[in-house]
């Protein structure tokens, strides 16, 4: 091997630019927001140290709890929507025929669209006057079901979750197909000899074989649902009357609409804490599955 000194110089030059950029733009901001969260600060002028005042206010603000609840609604709807749909489609589209390749690429397509475009198109679909959603309901004779989907607080979180599900089935479909195709043909044969076919085979052979992948997908689903900021900003902006507020839009609106930088920073830190808790929970769950 080369003289150690030459290697050391190479390592430093190869690694440092990436490490520096990553530290400055990803890691350092986390500590900054924790620090700014302790101040009452309008962005300009002097900042007043208020200790944990911002955090106390956050925990007492019912909008914060609503935002957290809305985030959890998105998580639940993603787990109830994307995973079962993707799994069902994967079982049906397992073989690499031209037909199933075509359906797969159609299902994956929304994934490459800008979230702004997805939000705008669905905003039109939900439009109270000319929207597709109401038109379809009228055509089905369900006039009483028509409504302003994005402004009715009873249904608007559900309405917001549909486009998010619509655009995210694709990757899970591909993940599940890869996992299903990995099941060896010997296991298939063994199942056949034991007389396991149809539903019984699915439940007692196929699902256990890909269970690890299902768990990974659940984890992805949870972290993916925390990223729904764009759709909500474009479709509702968190409104009306903050009924579709998510943690991220709550942070955004507090910081850039009413210029409470200190408070926004504290909310940012809360988002990190909550994601860390969720990730910890995920690891606890996946860890147990591996043992079992």
């Amino acid at each position: 091997m080369a003289p150690a000194v030459r290697s050391r110089g190479f390592i430093a030059l190869a690694l440092l630019p990436a490490l520096l950029l990553f530290l400055v733009f990803v890691i350092v901001p986390i500590f900054w927001s924790a620090y700014y969260g302790l101040f009452d600060w309008k962005g300009l002028g002097s900042a007043k140290f208020i200790g944990l005042g911002n955090y106390e206010e956050i925990l007492q603000d019912e909008i914060f709890w609503r935002a957290l609840k809305n985030n959890l609604i998105l998580v639940a709807s993603s787990i109830a929507g994307q995973i079962p749909i993707a799994l069902l489609l994967a079982l049906l589209l397992l073989r690499n025929t031209l037909f199933s390749r075509f359906i797969r690429s159609a299902v994956f397509m929304p994934m490459v669209l800008s979230t702004v475009v997805v939000g705008l198109i669905w905003g039109y679909i939900y439009h109270p006057q000319f929207g597709l959603a109401n038109a379809v309901l009228e055509w089905l004779g369900l006039e009483s079901w028509t409504r302003a989907w994005l402004s009715d607080p009873k249904v608007n979180m559900l309405a917001v979750s549909i486009p998010i599900n619509w655009s995210n089935v694709g990757p899970y479909l591909i993940i599940f197909i890869a996992a299903l195709q990995n099941i060896s043909s010997e296991i298939d044969d063994a199942a056949k000899i034991d007389g396991a076919v149809g539903w019984r085979k699915l439940i007692s052979v196929t699902l256990p074989m890909i269970w690890g992948t299902v768990v990974v997908s659940l984890v992805l689903c949870i972290s993916g649902s925390l990223k729904a900021f764009d759709h909500v900003i474009v479709m509702t902006g968190g409104g009306p009357a903050q009924s579709t507020e998510l943690l991220a839009t709550y942070m955004y609106n507090n910081t850039f609409d009413v210029y409470r930088y200190g408070y926004g920073s504290a909310v940012s830190t809360m988002i990190i804490v909550i994601s860390a808790l969720l990730i910890g929970l995920q690891y606890a769950l996946t860890g147990r599955k591996k043992e079992g």
Partner: peptide, 18 residues
């Protein structure tokens, strides 16, 4: 590896200030 887990939206405010 930790960087993969950091939600980007939580860095918007501090990055803006920085």
């Amino acid at each position: 590896l930790a960087g993969l887990l950091i939600p980007i939206h939580s860095t918007l405010v501090p990055l803006f200030i920085m």
